[in-house]
Design a protein around this nucleic acid. Structure first.
Lengths: 121, 121
DNA sequence: CTATTGACTTAGAGTTGCTCCAACTCGCTA
DNA sequence: TAGCGAGTTGGAGCAACTCTAAGTCAATAG
């Protein structure tokens, strides 16, 4: 699999995949005789996980740490679990933020019917 | 109200408030004889709304547009409503993203018990 | 057998949205 | 009058992309 296909499969752009590689967030990627990257299904899965982590706000720093642990094998499994469950906790907070904002928006939108001066400074 | 209090009240930092002002996302702010900004309750409300919009991912560009419309008064009320309801729709998408990621995390975390090789590249 | 097309490569500049720093002013207390 | 604390400004720095320029390589078209 080449980079364009990989990008389509995992959700990241080709640019971002290269950027992630350079930033040390990916395992070594094999190259073909043409020097182009070749992506295995395993790697696509990894990229897809990174996509979701990033999409929900994990920092590159955290993702780098996570990758480093994964490369180290069994030793880091406990910290890896910790990182993921911490992230899961922050998702709950983010959801509460969305909910709060939605209710503010609903009130605000409703107020426009009554009172067009609502926003004036 | 001075900038520090305003920051505490709306959730934005003093730095960010100044930055938003310079970027044209706030109405004119009065100054005291000392040249310091004075914040009215009205303005605090406005800042609080911006805080929630930004916190949930609205771009500064959108927020600038929204402010411009608000300054224009009644004329822009329809577009303002549109901006807010568009944003509300993107919040629903974001929530779906969070949910999806949470379920991926749950599966991943569970898999660490069974199979510590799970992540290896 | 060249020539062009298209997908890839790299290094590096640009963008967004802050965040912090340096150097300054002002009003106030001691 | 000296120092403190809260504010002021312009500008540098940072994260996480995102895009551009200039080039390589393989394959097909003429």
């Amino acid at each position: 699999m080449r980079i364009a296909e990989a990008a389509a499969a995992c959700g990241l752009s080709a640019h971002t995949i290269r950027f992630y590689e350079k930033s040390g967030m990916l395992p070594e990627i094999e190259r073909g005789t043409d020097g182009h990257r070749r992506f295995t299904p395993r790697l696509i899965e990894w990229l897809t996980l990174l996509y979701w982590l990033r999409e929900t706000g994990m920092s590159l720093e955290q993702m780098r740490r996570f990758t480093t642990l994964a490369k180290a094998g069994d030793a880091g499994v406990e910290e890896r679990r910790q990182i993921l469950s911490d992230h899961s906790a922050t998702l709950k907070v983010k959801r509460a933020t969305l909910d709060k904002c939605e209710s503010i928006l609903a009130i605000k939108i409703a107020s426009y019917g009554q009172n067009t001066k609502e926003d004036d400074p």
